[in-house]
């Protein structure tokens, strides 16, 4: 079993019309043993920007702390709100700084532009290669399972409700076949006015 699936966990993000959805499962394990079922993998970076981190748990925490620190420093220095694309570049730079001894984490950035409310989502590999599609991204152990279902669910210009439904359905279907993630899920719907957090009841095995 590789280090990337030691703790397990899956994160997904989907983009809609002036809204994005980001969801994760709640399991944290040690190989095949489930340790806890209340560990979300989505973290708030700025008001409408969230960072999802899949992979090795201790590395995700290190990356998260460093990114939060750098983001605060950026906002203080520039005296303006950070954009999701900047967060993504920041994470990417951090990961590439460790090119030859990488953090074992695949991050995902999802959010709305603080001014234009344009949705932005991106995923990257362990050394920070950004892939920013316009539809959806998934990282973590369940990536493959999710991509298939997402492809079937995603439509152009979805509203917040429709987007939430699509994300939840895709996430639940993906968790169905991934032994290393599951045990509940949480989905954040980010719109220009507010962030809506919802827990989804999932299978507990």
């Amino acid at each position: 079993m590789s280090i990337m699936s030691y703790n397990g966990g899956t994160v997904i993000a989907m983009a809609g019309k002036e809204c994005v959805c980001v969801g994760s499962d709640l399991r944290i394990g040690e190989q095949m043993t489930t340790i806890a079922t209340n560990q979300k993998k989505i973290y708030k970076v700025a008001d409408k920007i969230y960072l999802g981190l899949g992979g090795f748990h201790s590395d995700t925490q290190t990356v998260l702390n460093t990114v939060q620190f750098r983001k605060s420093l950026y906002e203080l220095r520039e005296n303006r709100k950070i954009k999701p694309k900047v967060v993504a570049t920041m994470v990417s730079n951090l990961l590439y700084q460790h090119r030859f001894g990488p953090y074992f984490t695949e991050p995902l950035v999802a959010g709305l532009d603080p001014i234009t409310n344009e949705p932005y989502i991106c995923g990257m590999d362990t050394i920070g290669c950004i892939a920013a599609p316009r539809d959806f991204v998934a990282v973590g152990t369940g990536q493959e399972y999710l991509l298939g279902v997402c492809e079937g669910f995603w439509r152009e210009n979805m509203g917040p409700d429709e987007l939430f439904e699509a994300t939840s359905q895709a996430l639940l279907s993906g968790l169905e076949r991934d032994a290393a993630s599951g045990w509940g899920a949480v989905v954040y719907t980010i719109t220009k006015d507010r962030v809506n957090m919802k827990t989804i009841k999932a299978r507990m095995d």
Partner: peptide, 24 residues
């Protein structure tokens, strides 16, 4: 279904296993 068994069990002993998302 084992998942339903677990929810039944949690109900029976009165344990709340639902996860509450917190703003961070």
């Amino acid at each position: 279904d084992v998942s339903e068994l677990l929810y039944e069990f949690a109900n029976e002993i009165g344990r709340d296993i639902a996860y509450e998302p917190q703003e961070d």
